[in-house]
Design a protein around this nucleic acid. Structure first.
Lengths: 221, 221
DNA sequence: AATTGCAATATGCAAGTTGCAAATTATTGA
DNA sequence: TCAATAATTTGCAACTTGCATATTGCAATT
């Protein structure tokens, strides 16, 4: 056995996604210390073995402390590891991704947290560019087969909003009537009694998710 | 910062799958020391920061050292962590899953490695039962949308064999002609020149994967 | 050498899905 | 009241899929 072996560094990083101005964005923070001082990095931190029950708890704590957020969608992405990714030594980072509606984020957002479009990610600390790319890929894949994209919307939303957020996440144009048909068949959402959005010509009916949990489907939306 | 914070234990576990006697099985080893001495556990080990370039490299090394296997399908599952999963302290285990054809495994298999049906998993060390359940779920999900199940077959195989391994992994009966049609459309496989299996009444044509890499599809097979 | 049995493979069609275009509806502002 | 606009519904052709039935190639038997 290798009890004596030097233990690797273990951290948790969170890719916090939101959609602002029609763009998928990630919350980044400039590092205020070495290594990579001054460069953008994901929010993250060390596992506190005395207070965190698991790395999921660490991720939730990071979201709370660095973005003022609680109770949003949070799921493990994967673990990134290696001798070279952190100049301080062999390290592993368990990455989590989180989705938050822009409205909820701006209410609490600390001033040092910036929202950068995923299409304009450059010069990041550590291997965070790779981590974000992996998270975006996961969001795209899983988004097509689940209710995931809906967690980027506020609690109530219209069908055109839902279609647009799916289209944005999946990176394709969606056929409107086919989308409505599928959402209907899946019984994903329910109308909000008496709710209408007056943002456009004809008011759109307001809906909400039937369940707060993530739902996965068989067919692509 | 928390440089002083005690670092968690970091290990890697590998769920090695194969299909033997028509059953999906996992390679398990009885532990020869505390904790959980005498109980079945996944193969795994500590990260060797001096020789492993990443946790993937650790997993490959574990496969080599504990099962005599190289060059088989290997992919990260997810990381399991917590204060209670290992009595020695707060720990994280990066789990990987691997697929191997039964033929390749039996050629090299050490005598202490047992193949247990995933339907008969009981009394495992640590949280390995949970880890295996998660891996089986992933195999099912990903198997329906990719060439994953084919990595449980030898390099050449017949269409009925391919259909059966998909059916087993997906846990459903597959319509034969529909399956052939889809495999054909996807151009997943190519015939082996002059190859025929004489195992049954009418010899079946032999095929191989067109690529050694995992392929993912849009539609369920 | 022809016949039978069996599993592999091919074919045809009804039923289910999906994509597209056009029609209808509810509102706002002229 | 009417035109403009976006939300919603409807209809249908094209594509997919599931199921049943037919055909094929070989082995064992007659």
């Amino acid at each position: 056995m290798h009890y004596e072996e030097p233990r690797p560094i273990l951290t948790v990083d969170v890719i916090l996604f939101t959609v602002q101005d029609g763009e998928l964005r990630v919350a980044l923070q400039r590092r205020d210390k070495s290594p990579f001082e001054g460069q953008f990095a994901l929010i993250g931190g060390y596992v506190h073995t005395d207070e965190d029950a698991s790395t999921l708890a660490t991720a939730a704590r990071v979201l709370k402390e660095k973005a003022g957020l609680e109770g949003i969608f949070l799921e493990q992405l994967m673990t990134f590891s290696g001798a070279d990714r952190d100049p301080r030594g062999w390290s592993a980072s368990v990455a989590y991704y989180a989705l938050v509606p822009a409205e909820k984020l701006s209410a609490e957002r600390p001033s040092d947290l910036e929202l950068i479009s995923v299409d304009r990610i450059t010069g990041l600390a550590f291997d965070h560019k790779t981590i974000i790319a992996t998270a975006v890929k996961r969001l795209r894949n899983k988004g097509a087969y689940s209710s995931l994209p809906a967690f980027l919307l506020p609690p109530t939303f219209t069908l055109p909003q839902l279609r647009d957020i799916y289209a944005k996440v999946m990176g394709v144009d969606l056929n409107d009537s086919a989308f409505r048909r599928k959402i209907e068949e899946l019984q994903l959402i329910e109308p909000v009694p008496g709710g209408f959005s007056k943002a456009s010509a004809r008011p759109a009916k307001l809906y909400r998710l039937r369940t707060t949990a993530l739902r996965e489907f068989d067919r692509k939306l």
